[in-house]
């Protein structure tokens, strides 16, 4: 059974985790054999932006070795065969253009989300 991972919130503690926790969880479960798809909506549409380049943190005398690399994580998810959908209206409302987005992601209209939900056996809305 395929699971649709619906991700709405973005950039919550991504620096401490060096990742988005749900993108990470998705990769971990896919590696274990799960069949999954991802729907990015609301602020999470920004995870599809290719130009994301999180700087490394410097806190006092501590220097971050691996800042989050959300664009790379998403590209890896796409490359692994997981369908990644992005709600077009949410992207447009945030000033995003099609050229801003990573290759391989699918823009879906808000009106198509119900069909997407219906096509998946499990829907996990994070």
């Amino acid at each position: 059974m395929e699971t649709l991972q619906v991700i709405s919130g973005a950039y919550r503690a991504t620096y401490e985790e060096q990742d988005d926790t749900i993108l990470w969880l998705t990769q971990a479960m896919v590696a274990a054999g799960a069949r999954m798809a991802v729907l990015l909506r609301c602020n999470a549409v920004n995870y599809a932006v290719r130009a994301q380049q999180a700087p490394a943190l410097a806190i006092g005398t501590w220097q971050q070795a691996h800042p989050p690399a959300i664009a790379a994580d998403l590209a890896r998810i796409v490359a692994s065969g997981v369908p990644v959908h992005v709600v077009r209206e949410d992207a447009e409302a945030r000033g995003l253009r099609a050229g801003d987005l990573a290759e391989g992601v699918h823009l879906v209209r808000q009106g198509e989300v119900a069909d997407l939900v219906a096509r998946h056996g499990r829907v996990w809305m994070w």
């Binding site: 950039y11 991504t14 920004n46 932006v49 290719r50 130009a51 994301q52 380049q53 999180a54 700087p55 989050p68 664009a71 000033g95 801003d100």
Partner: peptide, 13 residues
């Protein structure tokens, strides 16, 4: 500037 870079928002945008 840090948050802008994290989100891929260039100055020109």
């Amino acid at each position: 500037e840090f948050a802008l870079a994290e989100r891929g928002i260039g100055t020109e945008r």
